[in-house]
């Protein structure tokens, strides 16, 4: 077994286990922390696939900024205790069964695939910032600019939503 394969299996196991923990842990703060772990594992996978730029972005934006935002909101609203009422057992069973069936059916649909991935020496420049940046600012400059507008509107939306209503009394 090559070192790459070993790493692949370790990261996979970590990702799956952490994901399960995200779903099953009672405390939201724990969920967030487990989710950060999932993202780290996924970052590892990106590195294995020679997608360095995405790995870094994933780490910084997702595991860093977004998860901190989650954590902040949870702390802010003081939700870290286990106050969540449980759904009924039957509903949860139904949920697990349907999720499992979805997995099964998707695997059945996609399994006949002969592609493979190997790590060769000298290849893999596409995942580097130079190549991605070139393409992003030439071919994809319009979507890039549009996404900046999206950010702007998201910002405005967040401010508008988060503002305390002063004129109308709270419902």
């Amino acid at each position: 077994m090559h070192i790459t394969e070993i790493l692949f299996w370790i990261l996979t196991a970590l990702a799956l286990f952490s994901a399960l923990m995200v779903v099953s842990s009672d405390n939201p703060v724990h969920s967030v922390l487990w989710l950060i772990l999932v993202f780290m594992a996924i970052t590892g996978h990106y590195i294995l696939m020679n997608a360095q730029f995405l790995a870094i972005v994933n780490m910084i934006v997702y595991a860093g900024a977004i998860m901190v935002l989650f954590l902040f909101v949870i702390m802010f609203m003081n939700l870290n205790k286990d106050s969540e009422p449980q759904k009924s057992v039957w509903l949860r069973l139904a949920a697990v069964v349907s999720g499992g069936s979805l997995l099964l059916i998707l695997v059945a649909a996609l399994k006949d695939n002969g592609g493979y991935i190997n790590s060769m020496k000298g290849e893999g420049s596409i995942g580097l910032i130079k190549n991605l940046g070139n393409t992003l600012f030439t071919e994809y400059v319009v979507p890039f600019e549009i996404s900046s507008i999206l950010f702007l509107s998201a910002m405005v939306g967040a401010v508008v939503l988060g503002k305390k209503e002063s004129s109308t009394p709270a419902a």
Partner: peptide, 10 residues
């Protein structure tokens, strides 16, 4: 060279 089928990732 290590070869990982894309199915694993799927």
């Amino acid at each position: 060279m290590p070869i990982i089928p894309v199915n694993y990732y799927i």
